[in-house]
Simulated assay, not measured.
Amino acid sequence: MKNISILFFLCLFISCNKAKKDDYVSKIKEFQYEENLKFLDESESPLTKEDLKTFKKLDFYPINKKYRIVAKLEKTVNAPVFEMKTTKERRPLYIKYGTVTFTLDGKEQKIPIYQSKDIERDPQYINYLFFPFTDKTSGKSSYGGGRYIDVYTTDEKLDGTILIDFNKAYNPYCAYSDRYSCPLTPKENTLSVEILAGVKAYKKH
């Protein structure tokens, strides 16, 4: 009877862990689905009208929970406002919100994270943080100009950590059309490892 009870609780534990994993995968699949819907919608798609005719779906790396990172966040005190370079003449204002530190594939990464000063004019983005990055896949299987992740101040924890989910990495609109003005990824935001997560480079069909 004792062995049966142990077996029951073991099966329950495995089932619960699988459910949690499947729940995370479902959330990332939902993110990918919504991204594809946006690209298929002519009113908001960054694709040209010509490319939209042949577009089927975005290409993503396999979902891997390893790239859901809980990083240490060191906030920048009295950060000065600076002009972020873009692909055009536009120079939006940002501050360095802080530095995130984490270890991936045995290598420590220390990467700046930013906050737009435009939030003062548009309160709906008050919790948004900007995390651009390049990595060892950039210019190969992912877009050469780097990718972005939307991070939120609401992801900060009391223990000084913040969530960075590379499975939600997306391309700037400049990867799809040169009619956009996109922030250029600063050199400081270069990762020394491959990020095999998120969206891949766009290939015209």
Rank of each mutant, 00 (worst) to 15 (best):
A71C: 05
D51S: 15
Y173V: 08
S5W: 10
Y97S: 03
K29W: 05
R179T: 14
T153H: 03
K140R: 11
E194F: 10
V25F: 09
V193I: 12
E74Y: 06
V193W: 03
N17T: 14
D135H: 09
N3G: 03
I111M: 00
A197M: 10
P132S: 00
D135I: 12
D122Q: 13
S138I: 08
Y128P: 01
N171D: 04
Y170N: 03
K57H: 09
K110G: 04
I28P: 06
P172Y: 02
E44T: 15
I69T: 08
K200P: 02
K18E: 14
I14T: 00
C182G: 02
G145V: 01
G139S: 06
I95H: 01
S192E: 14
F166G: 01
K157P: 03
N127L: 08
E50N: 12
V193R: 06
F60D: 05
K65N: 13
I149Y: 00
F102P: 04
K204A: 08
K187Q: 06
T154I: 10
S26W: 02
K117G: 06
K21P: 08
K66Y: 12
I28L: 01
A79C: 10
I149L: 00
F9Q: 10
E120N: 11
S43M: 07
C174P: 05
I28K: 05
L158F: 00
S177M: 07
D22Y: 12
N127R: 09
I195D: 01
S45P: 09
D118W: 11
E50T: 13
T76A: 09
K53R: 13
M1N: 14
N36R: 07
S26I: 11
L104T: 08
V25Y: 10
K56F: 08
K88W: 04
K203Y: 06
T48R: 12
I126Q: 11
G139F: 02
K2P: 07
S142Y: 05
A169V: 07
I113E: 02
P62T: 09
R179C: 07
I119G: 01
N64E: 12
K96E: 10
P123R: 11
K117R: 15
K18Y: 05
G145L: 02
K136P: 05
P92K: 10
E35D: 09
K157R: 13
F31I: 05
I28W: 05
C182N: 06
